[in-house]
């Protein structure tokens, strides 16, 4: 699980072009949106694509992302349970 969380942090930084943010800067429980990493709606769509591409998880309703992308910890829990690849 901790390996998955580190992997997710690295992917988030790379996919969302978070300049000057390192894996060590993102705590497992940090909020990804709002006051946390300050991600926006386009970032949310990028994360939905990432779930599909890298973990075989298709969200039928983009609103589901709100809960799933709360933090790296919540994302990792969800991926662990639903991944198909």
């Amino acid at each position: 699980m901790s390996e998955l969380k580190e992997e997710l942090k690295a992917k988030i930084i790379e996919q969302l072009n978070l300049e000057d943010v390192s894996v060590a800067d993102i705590a497992d429980e940090d909020a990804l949106f709002g006051d946390g990493l300050g991600l926006d709606s386009i970032d949310a769509l990028e994360l939905i694509v990432m779930l599909d591409k890298d973990y075989g998880i298709r969200l039928s309703d983009p609103k589901e992302g709100r809960k799933i992308f709360e933090s790296v910890q919540v994302m990792a829990d969800y991926i662990q349970e639903h991944r198909t690849k």
Binding site: L16, N17, I42, D43, L45, E46, V49, D52, K53
Partner: peptide, 9 residues
Amino acid sequence: YFPSPAVFV
């Protein structure tokens, strides 16, 4: 088929 929303905008 994985178009990037960030690229598309």
